[in-house]
Design a protein around this nucleic acid. Sequence first.
DNA 1: AGCGTGATCTTT
DNA 2: AAGATCACGCTG
Length: 197
Amino acid sequence: MPWLEKPFFEHPTLDLAGMLLGKIFVRRLECGLELRGRIVETEAYLGRGDEACHAWRGRTERNAMMFAEPGRLYVYFTYGNHYMLNIVSEPESIAGAVLIRAMEPVSGNSFMQDRRSTTLFTNLMSGPGKLTQAMAIDRSCNGRSLFDGEFSMETSLELPPEAIGTSTRVGITRSRNLPWRKFIIGNLHVSKAKVSG
DNA sequence: AGCGTGATCTTT
DNA sequence: AAGATCACGCTG
């Protein structure tokens, strides 16, 4: 399948979040092994007017990559345990990114099972912290480009619009009313929203 | 439902 | 310098 070039990532962040559903995120390891996952859940984050966005008050050392040109990876560490994978969007100097929240494993299954210490298919990449662990993505991946050979994004069959669901974002406290989460309806790898009450 | 875990950011 | 927060996952 052809890989997506820079113009694809130049779409507005809110559009890109939906357009990334169904696409295949690829990592080629030094040893030759290819890890592939089909994106099934995303969230949009924008610097302006979005208090849940790391960059809402401007540039810091951590969030600097959100201001880079589209098509780079923004990877950060949180909760003392987990790395989060984002695809940078918006033109250079404007903060924006799409958080990859869940993927369906496509290849590299045994590597992922090893990393995750489980064989359960639906527990390999069904959350933002899980998928980075499965694909061995850490802070050293921050700033890497999707056009340099190691990482890439491949096209796939188009999803019909009715397959895409929308909701508010998961796990945030500020700006929680914005409907900036996108997911493939009924997909078994979509992360479980925490039920409150 | 509760807690581990540590970097980052805000407030003193 | 100290305190609060955190785009989460695991065990109960």
